[in-house]
Amino acid sequence: MTTHEMYTAGEKETLHASLNRHRDVVLWKLQGLDDEQLRRPMTPSGTNLLGLVKHLASVEYGWFVEAFGEEAEPLWFDPYTEDLTIGPGETTRQIADFYGRARAAADRVIAGRPLETLGRPSWRDTTVSLRWVLVHMIEETARHAGHMDIVRELIDGATGDHPRVTDTA
């Protein structure tokens, strides 16, 4: 969907396009960095770019897939204690591919259900609508994309939410 189309799209399409915009920012923040830079802890708590992507993949599976009764892929880590950390055996490709699969699984749930569809996350004693989950995941993804912007700036000075287009004329 183009930006212009998003301005007049329906509610579900607008929410999904907003989520996709922030998802794309997350992936863009990884571009041009080597493995060491992607894993480098940049805060006292250990925040790093690759750990944030792993976390976002985990929550996409949880909120969209598991909460709406679909089967998520088995996780090789504890999503409550290890989703923000990168183990020595985890590769950049593994984490990026994991995020891609989580995103695709979430997109199938979004496409196949109306916004009013109710789901129930296993870790909460509450019922949620797909609409609420979409809004929540826009917030979650945008929040962490902001973290990634700061971490990326600390690594190499790059900032922003999209590549800069330079005038070559």
Rank of each mutant, 00 (worst) to 15 (best):
A145D: 02
V109K: 00
P79I: 02
E153C: 07
F64I: 00
R23S: 03
H55L: 04
T47H: 13
T47R: 03
T91I: 03
K29P: 01
G51W: 08
W63F: 13
R103A: 14
T43C: 08
D97Q: 10
G146R: 04
R124P: 01
L49E: 01
F77G: 07
Y61N: 12
E116T: 15
E70I: 05
A96W: 02
L50T: 00
D107W: 01
V151H: 05
R103I: 04
E70N: 14
W123F: 15
T85K: 14
E71W: 00
E36V: 12
H147A: 08
L75A: 12
D97V: 06
Y61V: 02
R21W: 14
R108T: 13
G146W: 09
G69A: 08
L56W: 04
H144W: 01
R103T: 15
L49V: 02
R108M: 01
T92W: 07
L33S: 12
R131A: 06
R39G: 02
L49Y: 05
R124W: 05
G87R: 14
E90F: 08
G112T: 09
E116C: 00
L75C: 07
R120T: 03
A17I: 06
I95Y: 09
D149G: 15
T91F: 09
D156Q: 13
T47L: 12
H55I: 04
P41F: 12
E66H: 07
L52S: 10
A105N: 09
L56Y: 08
P74L: 14
P79A: 03
V26K: 03
S122E: 09
R23L: 04
T141Q: 06
Y80C: 02
L84K: 11
R40L: 15
A106E: 05
L15S: 00
E116Q: 08
D24I: 04
I110R: 02
F64A: 00
V109W: 01
V135S: 11
T91M: 07
G146A: 05
